[in-house]
């Protein structure tokens, strides 16, 4: 129960952070990406603020074996810089630049009832679903 309440509240806090920082406005995101035009540097400050706090937290987390609530710490272990990592980032960057939406803000804007965000979220989930189909076929081939 404690876990669930904490998960809910952290999701809420994260959503508020996205609203406050301006990330839920695709125009603002594109303003940041428009480095050769009229540039809005806000997003650099969003990243800086988040990473300063995040760095402190992960420094503590790396020294622990369990979370404060006693659950397992799920820290990523992969160090491989491989094709999927880079190709995936290229495709994501292309979509992000086209629309100015990334997964977090689109969920918040969906909940706020914005029609275009609802449409984008549906297409994004279809994209994720295509990946699941693709990766199933891919791994089956490799594991035969």
């Amino acid at each position: 129960m404690k876990q669930t309440i904490s998960e809910f509240l952290i999701g809420l806090l994260f959503g508020l952070g996205l609203v406050l920082s301006g990330m839920t406005d695709p125009g603002k995101v594109k303003g940041f990406l428009d480095i050769f035009g009229s540039w809005d540097p806000s997003l650099a400050l969003v990243m800086a603020g988040a990473i300063v706090v995040g760095f402190l937290a992960f420094t503590i987390a790396k020294k622990r074996t369990t979370s404060f609530l006693g659950s397992e710490l799920h820290l990523p272990t992969s160090n491989q810089i491989d094709k999927p990592l880079v190709i995936g980032a290229v495709l994501f960057g292309a979509g992000w630049g086209l629309a100015g939406f990334c997964p977090g803000p689109v969920i918040v804007s969906f909940a706020a009832g914005q029609t275009k965000a609802i449409f984008f979220l549906v297409m994004m989930i279809i994209g994720m679903w295509i990946f699941e189909r693709f990766s199933n076929g891919f791994s089956n081939k490799n594991h035969q």
């Binding site: 999927p84 979509g95 629309a99 990334c102 984008f120 994209g127 994720m128 990946f131």
Partner: peptide, 12 residues
């Protein structure tokens, strides 16, 4: 864009 973001983030 939605398809690219959905597929790309999962693949990457």
């Amino acid at each position: 864009a939605g398809l690219l973001v959905g597929f790309g983030t999962r693949y990457g």
